[in-house]
């Protein structure tokens, strides 16, 4: 299995298309960094409109942590496309290339083959997220410095102390990884049925776009089913940027407001991963390889 995973990872990172994602992320992150560097105040004014009249904001709002928050918020909607680009190609791409039949005739069980392919695609998403961490978080910290983080929600503003942010990012990145692997598993599942990767990529993105739109639309009909969409849980990483409060309403640094909810979301995502990968294995084991 380990050997197979290594082979699959090797193949992924030898494929030119793999690097599209890394370049795309670099481009998006650089653009956000540049925009915030040049014109960050305007963005802040927008976020804090309604507050600016009453309050004076002290400290360095546009700091590395804030920039990374914006980057994550923006990127984590689009990175699924980049994840699908590889995960949806894992089986369909091989079928398209004609190598799937060769793989399946090797003395490895289809389950092992598929699991190692899935794990390899997860390694890719981990690499992708590490890349985001390096240029989105660490580079931003280097360029913009650090200070407390302003988390602007729709009806409240959360202020996090400078020394209370970094660990939250570690948790958020771990959670985001889970969310991206969920997308990966969906793409992977679609990949089983197709003989070229375009279909599964488009299918994966369509599911995510439709679900995200439905989750964002505040229509009562969807409000009730929203909890069943995995996309609703994908933004659970934001839960790490809220604090618990005392009875007097004081926020407590170093706490997470609703950890059980975040963990439940993580559980939902994990269940999706298990389901999609499990279903992939079941389908693939019975599948006639005709490509």
């Amino acid at each position: 299995m380990w050997k197979l995973i290594k082979i699959e990872v090797f193949k992924i990172f030898k494929k030119p298309r793999t690097y599209i994602a890394f370049i795309a992320i670099w481009a998006i992150v650089s653009l956000i960094q540049l925009a915030l560097y040049v014109d960050g105040q305007k963005y802040i004014d927008f976020v804090l409109s309604g507050v600016n009249d009453t309050f004076k904001v002290g400290g360095k709002i546009i700091n590395g942590y804030f920039v990374c928050f914006i980057i994550l918020q923006t990127l984590l909607i689009h990175v699924p496309l980049l994840v699908a680009l590889v995960s949806a190609d894992m089986v369909a791409g091989e079928a398209n290339m004609g190598t799937l039949r060769l793989l399946v005739t090797k003395p490895q069980s289809r389950t092992t083959l598929l699991l190692s392919k899935f794990i390899a695609s997860s390694v890719y998403t981990i690499a992708l997220l590490l890349w985001i961490a390096v240029i989105g978080l660490f580079l931003s910290m280097f360029i913009f410095g650090t200070d407390g983080l302003i988390n602007a929600k729709s009806d409240q503003i959360i202020l996090l102390n400078a020394n209370d942010v970094f660990w939250r990012y570690l948790c958020a990145f771990a959670f985001a990884e889970l969310a991206l692997i969920t997308v990966g598993s969906l793409g992977f599942f679609f990949s089983i049925f197709a003989e070229n990767s375009l279909g599964p990529i488009v299918a994966t993105m369509s599911v995510i776009i439709v679900f995200t739109i439905l989750s964002t639309l505040e229509i009562p009909l969807f409000e009730s089913v929203k909890q069943y969409f995995f996309t609703t849980h994908m933004i659970g990483w934001k839960g790490f940027f809220e604090m618990k409060q005392t009875a007097e309403g004081d926020s407590i640094p170093g706490t997470i407001r609703n950890l059980p909810a975040v963990l439940r979301s993580a559980g939902v995502l994990l269940a999706h991963i298990v389901f999609f990968v499990g279903a992939s294995i079941v389908v693939f084991k019975r599948k006639d390889v005709l490509s």
């Binding site: 030898k14 494929k15 290339m97 004609g98 190598t99 005739t105 003395p107 069980s109």
Partner: peptide, 21 residues
């Protein structure tokens, strides 16, 4: 399956391989 396939080699239709390798 596993033991048997260790002793089988095959070229099935077109010899498709990883073009990028």
């Amino acid at each position: 399956r596993k033991e048997i396939l260790q002793q089988v080699g095959a070229v099935i239709e077109r010899p498709d391989l990883y073009k990028y390798l």
